[in-house]
């Protein structure tokens, strides 16, 4: 695939916006992500001291917290892109693809966040799962966007899918604060003293804070890299579907045997 405009895609084409960033830029972001991730491994596993109370289990926080941050960032991007798609002046499939790609990353990192939290909770809290408000909200968040991804996988024309999914994404986004509010309220009303305080270490050691910040940076770079990659994959996917359709039509016009079309069926 060549640069935008030189291939069969013109500026007026609705499928403009073939790339989010130039391949070089993506490569640079990828390398930076790798470097910061390596730094995170070194600082997180060796440089930062083990926690006074939690021991080495606390090191999970260096990926747990960045994963949580990334989940929120990703869902935020999905919501903004969906709104931009629905706004007539900025309507473009670019925003739909960004929303979808970002939601996928958000779901993956929410799952990672829950999983790591659970692994950490077992030695530190003594349980895999606690009905803490933040945990419950995150779980609901995970399922809200899992549903969104299921909706994205429903075959439809690109515009129909984009509009449908954009509305679903915005509903999910509006629902998150209500879920959070109600769940927090519920837990504070019904839980006497909270034993499981997620902020056990309000004062953290300097290198610990450093590890956290490196983690946040590394994960953000990784997010940008993966988002661009996923966006590009989506463009190629759409392109393939269209080409297959064109080829099938061409075959029919020439009177050839009917061809099996893949995708866009079912």
């Amino acid at each position: 695939m060549s640069a935008p405009g030189t291939d069969m895609v013109s500026d007026a084409d609705p499928r403009s916006g073939e790339r989010l960033m130039a391949p070089v830029a993506r490569r640079i972001v990828g390398v930076l992500a790798l470097v910061t991730l390596a730094a995170l491994v070194i600082v997180g596993l060796w440089v930062a001291p083990p926690d006074e109370f939690q021991g080495d289990a606390q090191r999970l926080m260096y990926i747990h917290v960045p994963a949580a941050w990334l989940a929120y960032l990703a869902f935020g991007v999905t919501a903004v892109s969906s709104a931009l798609y629905l706004w007539p002046r900025t309507r473009s499939l670019v925003w739909d693809r960004v929303a979808g790609a970002s939601a996928e990353l958000g779901v993956v990192f929410t799952a990672l966040c829950l999983l790591l939290g659970s692994l950490w909770g077992r030695p530190v809290w003594g349980v895999w799962w606690a009905w803490d408000a933040r945990l419950v909200t995150t779980a609901v968040l995970f399922f809200l966007y899992l549903g969104y991804l299921a909706l994205r996988r429903v075959p439809a024309t690109l515009d129909v899918r984009a509009k449908r999914c954009a509305i679903a994404a915005l509903i999910a986004f509006i629902d998150v604060p209500i879920v959070h509010f109600s769940v927090t309220w519920w837990r504070t009303l019904h839980q006497e003293a909270t034993v499981f305080n997620p902020e056990l270490d309000a004062e953290i050691h300097g290198t610990m804070a450093l590890a956290l910040w490196i983690g946040v940076l590394a994960f953000t770079l990784l997010y940008v890299y993966l988002l661009d990659l996923r966006y590009r994959l989506e463009v190629l996917d759409e392109d393939r579907d269209e080409r297959e359709l064109e080829a099938a039509i061409a075959d029919r016009v020439q009177g050839g045997p009917p061809r099996e079309t893949v995708g866009a069926s079912s």
């Binding site: 609901v140 399922f143 809200l144 899992l146 549903g147 969104y148 299921a150 909706l151 429903v154 679903a168 509903i171 999910a172 629902d175 209500i178 879920v179 509010f181 109600s182 769940v183 519920w186």
Partner: peptide
């Protein structure tokens, strides 16, 4: 599809 989409959204209603 409807249960997967709808049930998490109405979670606050169940709570309330």
């Amino acid at each position: 599809l409807v249960p997967v989409l709808l049930l998490p959204v109405v979670a606050p209603v169940l709570l309330g």
